[in-house]
Design a protein around this nucleic acid. Sequence first.
DNA 1: TCATTATTACCGAACGGTCGGTACAATGTC
DNA 2: GACATTGTACCGACCGTTCGGTAATAATGA
Lengths: 187, 187
Amino acid sequence: MPAPKISREEVLDRITEIFRQYGYEGASLSLISKATGLGRASLYHHFPGGKEEMGHEVFRRIGEHLDRNVLSPLRAKGSPKKCLKNWTQGLNLFYGGGSKNCLLGTMILSGGSDRFSKEITSTFRTLIDLLSSVLEEAKIPHNLARRRAARAIGEIQGALLVSRGLEDEGYFQQILEDLPGELLSVK
Amino acid sequence: MPAPKISREEVLDRITEIFRQYGYEGASLSLISKATGLGRASLYHHFPGGKEEMGHEVFRRIGEHLDRNVLSPLRAKGSPKKCLKNWTQGLNLFYGGGSKNCLLGTMILSGGSDRFSKEITSTFRTLIDLLSSVLEEAKIPHNLARRRAARAIGEIQGALLVSRGLEDEGYFQQILEDLPGELLSVK
DNA sequence: TCATTATTACCGAACGGTCGGTACAATGTC
DNA sequence: GACATTGTACCGACCGTTCGGTAATAATGA
């Protein structure tokens, strides 16, 4: 076989970036072709299922990235406070300090909601489960932990959206800074 | 002149619904034509500027709705607590209990961000200004009031998005219920 | 009062262009 | 030669938009 110009994972990363920026409907094959350097035919060779298959693969890939860069701190041993600090740091990097959209949000509001509802809900659930388990480790009662975790996930999504709406990335950073303290507050 | 089949404001309301559901790019003229009962060509009679003019008009119209149904409680005389309660009630109605997208969020993440950035930022700013002024009336220091108000707007957006992601409208309701208390807490 | 004229509302058909997707021959590597 | 990979050329469907034309009402003048 001829040496691929570019690895499959690298292809997926670039497609991810297009989906993230333009949403599912806005991510045209022309854009994807340009971003990957692959012609239409090549794209269909790698993803016979077309755009929809690309979408599913992108979710798989983003799951890996999320796991490695964002979720891993939540699984690490160490004080909950430290865990959460590392988590928000990971989030900040993952979202480019507030400059990058979240693929989940973009997909939900740009026509991918029906196609990828399974991936979307399960990703949100994983996030909430993991976060709330850290809170429980900090002696926060189960129900409260779950409520706070769910709320925090919403806050992050909202912060990404509003910081874009206000054209002020500082907004995202602010929310992120305050999160660990509020999640662990005894109130 | 022949009697219009449908009033301009009614037309705008239906177009708004399409934009809200499908986003700017996803809202095709065919969809809009179907929703309004007007042929594609007729739409250009009412909106010579085409889809983009429709977008701007939709923002004007949604501004009116927002003002009447959501913002007015914040301007009313009365205890801040009462104001906020009425506000969240208005929000709940406005967003169909969490079942309807927010036009702002949808536009931001579906290709309308550049075209309508002026409308989007100014709407967010108005919301934050008004909300924070209510908090200041409740003796909350200026800076804290502004931070809490901004955070609340983000939470609402996040709640709408995540409730869709989790396919659980209860999530939105929950956030909404807790908001007034947290905005006014002395902590 | 009644025909005439403007004005307005609307639509069918078509424009050039892009969409996601496919058929197939050519290429390069083993 | 076998086979994975790719470029080219193409498809029908739909995109936002425009044009030519029709029909209904309002305003006009005799």
